[in-house]
Design a protein around this nucleic acid. Structure first.
Lengths: 219, 219
DNA sequence: GTACGATTCAGACAGACGTTTGAATCACTC
DNA sequence: GAGTGATTCAAACGTCTGTCTGAATCGTAC
């Protein structure tokens, strides 16, 4: 504990960079340890398996992010009943600008976003563990700001917000190409403002006539 | 050409099912050919490489979907100036309900959505090839329905719509868990109505004060 | 019924994968 | 400075990967 935990962090840093660029399945432990400058066997000495490395990589960044989300929500509720825009900001901003400098931020964004799309079972499970509390909390706050929406509809729309956030974080390259460089998602402030405006309007949208959530489960 | 192309289709069918469940990297050619009931070497005889199989799997579904999108747009414009809701529907509906029966539809949705999140270079390239025309067309129609938005802002918001659509298609399991089965994304009509309402409101949202797209490129 | 192009097949190829080993090296206590 | 537990190291394990080969089989035209 007191000694240098350098090796562990070297592995995590390299894993974060490589996973965010090529996906978990696209990076071998040999590539990873060579990039990190550590021995191949160090991975199994410190983590036990590749799966544990992956879980550690995600947990290291996602936990602080979700802590910040909840903290922003706390601060909002201390000041009274939050606006929809404020709640959306608390959900989006920690994801967009947790990391400091620009290349590192971009790496981190892609890493987080990738968690949603990685198909591996244990990552889906990790996702549920890390996010269920945050989801529950945001659902309550959103519901008090949008009392006309059913609980299920609030969750569905939250899912939409998360979806557009994730997609923005993950696919910054196509966006930059589409907009010919005019809209750089790496510009966190501009992106944040655009998402908040769009998402708040979506959250406030009228409930469609179609009975939105009345069906039973379908296999 | 006239002979039975059964083997090719067997491979594509099995690939679609397996890729959509485990991702491209998570499926080996041995698993794939065993599932398809064909010989391992048949893949290289008919396709040449795994990469070509992957491209064929995506192209087979995405091309008809995008054709339907453009056809819906044509039909809308023949009847006059389309509403935002109608344009969103033309973008979303073909993705949600192209396939017929329910399990096949779910497989197809996950497959399409996965194209956005697969990190492999050649898939990003395929994505650009298949979608750039659709993007351009929708941008023009959206702009005429939302004249107050800049070209870059329209593209950005279209990206948000695609993002929430993709996320909805890809992560149907978590949504079902969150909403305790009340909102099943497999219910295409309900999902479509919810997305259209949310996305149309987002597209119409006021442009935030922050100068949205004025910066030059950032490395 | 035989000849021929198209297709299928079992088997093997080299390389990459995650994992494990056992000895070598390190940091530190007494 | 001998001893000890933590850490690093090169090397190898068996398995799986995508790809390729050459012979066997098929459908069909003559």
């Amino acid at each position: 504990m007191s000694g240098r935990a350098a090796t562990k962090d070297l592995v995590l840093d390299a894993a974060e960079a490589l996973f965010s660029a090529k996906g978990v399945d696209g990076v071998s432990l040999r590539t990873l340890t060579k990039e990190a400058g550590v021995n191949l066997a160090a991975v199994h000495y410190h983590f036990g398996s590749k799966e544990e490395v992956v879980k550690a990589v995600f947990a290291r960044r996602i936990r602080p992010m979700n802590r910040e989300r909840l903290a922003m929500l706390d601060a909002l509720e201390d000041r009274g009943r939050p606006e929809v825009e404020e709640i959306v900001t608390a959900l989006v901003a920690p994801a967009l600008r947790l990391a400091g400098d620009s290349p590192a931020r971009q790496r981190f964004m892609r890493l987080c976003a990738r968690l949603y799309s990685e198909p591996a079972e244990y990552l889906q499970q990790l996702y549920m563990e890390e996010f269920s509390q945050v989801i529950d909390r945001f659902e309550r706050v959103f519901r008090s700001a949008l009392p006309s929406l059913s609980r299920a509809e609030v969750r569905r729309r939250m899912h939409f917000v998360v979806g557009l956030l994730v997609h923005t974080m993950l696919n910054s390259a196509p966006v930059r190409r589409w907009t010919s460089g005019a809209c750089d998602p790496a510009d966190a402030e501009s992106t944040l403002a655009a998402i908040v405006s769009f998402a708040a309007a979506g959250m406030r949208a009228p409930v469609p006539d179609t009975p939105d959530c009345v069906r039973g489960g379908v296999t």
